[in-house]
């Protein structure tokens, strides 16, 4: 084969390269730039090497925030994925009921994030909120419910908000996956005498693998980056109990103006999200692929 001496095909790649450069690479590089310097003011910067990274990696408050973040995202996945699957399985398959349930399910997804925070704050307020007043009137709790009163109350409110907001997305994805299974699979399973658990385990779940991969990745990334909800609810409190990574980062960067450590922190944060997304993706892609012996 003849080789092109002057290959102009790279002109076609150029637009994408420029877009990616401006949208991702250049902003990221400015963060890298901040993370290795101590900047006192314009034109007054000192190169500090890995100093900020070392500081951040040994920062106890960051470790605590990271721990909370893992617990939070883990709980989100553990609750939302099974719940979403259950809802999708229970949804009507056709007719006006199917349309009605799809629309109802989509409502939380259509509400702006900060409005969701406000809705739940009002809903759980101990003085006027339906939930807050309701649970306190039952007199079951030793400390009256108020999401600023105890860390556990703040967490419960936050989890409820998150599950209410995002489980519909998981359910919609699973519903789409379920509807794509040809009828013959169910017919064959009936003839083979499969129980409904076996149908779920060997037909529905494997066929939903694709949409579940997307659901897990989306919910993982999104919950790991959570900011608006805890910020609106308690601003990270009570104490530091709902100070997740992004909230701590914003405090560091805009509250204390520690741009260097904040930049180093951002990069670490980014790498964690990337690493776990990759692990989940690989795990779900390869689940049940290996050969099994008889």
């Amino acid at each position: 084969m003849e080789k092109w001496e002057n290959n102009r095909a790279w002109f076609l790649v150029l637009p994408v390269f420029v877009i990616v450069a401006f949208s991702a690479i250049i902003p990221l590089m400015t963060v890298v730039n901040y993370s290795i310097q101590d900047i006192f003011g314009p034109g007054n910067a000192v190169f500090v090497g890995m100093e900020w990274f070392k500081e951040m990696l040994t920062d106890k408050r960051l470790h605590d925030a990271l721990g909370r973040q893992f617990i939070f995202s883990g709980l989100v996945l553990l609750i939302e994925i099974p719940l979403g699957i259950l809802i999708a399985l229970a949804m009507p398959k056709k007719g006006w009921k199917a349309s009605a349930s799809l629309v109802t399910l989509a409502i939380p997804l259509l509400i702006p994030w900060n409005v969701i925070g406000t809705i739940w704050i009002i809903f759980t307020r101990p003085d006027i909120g339906l939930f807050g007043v309701g649970i306190n009137s039952l007199d079951l709790l030793d400390v009256p419910f108020d999401h600023t009163a105890r860390p556990s109350y703040a967490w419960v409110t936050l989890m409820a908000m998150e599950v209410w907001h995002w489980t519909p997305l998981v359910a919609l994805l699973c519903y789409a996956g379920l509807r794509a299974i040809p009828e013959a699979y169910y017919q064959a399973a009936r003839i083979d005498g499969a129980s409904s658990w076996a149908v779920f385990r060997y037909i529905q779940l494997p066929k939903m693998r694709g949409v579940l991969t997307i659901a897990v990745l989306l919910r993982w990334m999104d919950s790991f980056l959570i900011y608006a909800e805890p910020f609106a609810l308690t601003g990270g409190g009570p104490g530091n109990s709902t100070t997740f990574l992004s909230i701590y980062l914003v405090k560091l960067a805009t509250g204390q103006f520690d741009l260097g450590p904040a930049a180093a922190f951002s990069l670490i944060y980014f790498l964690i999200v990337l690493l776990f997304s990759f692990i989940f993706y690989q795990a779900l892609l390869n689940v049940g692929k290996g050969e099994k012996s008889v």
């Binding site: 040809p182 013959a184 003839i191 083979d192 005498g193 499969a194 060997y202 050969e291 099994k292």
Partner: peptide, 18 residues
């Protein structure tokens, strides 16, 4: 129509095991 995650043996055994 196959049970994708199972081996051929398990596929054949499925109706009997049920």
């Amino acid at each position: 129509v196959l049970y994708d995650t199972m081996s051929v043996f398990d596929n054949l055994a499925f109706p009997l095991r049920n």
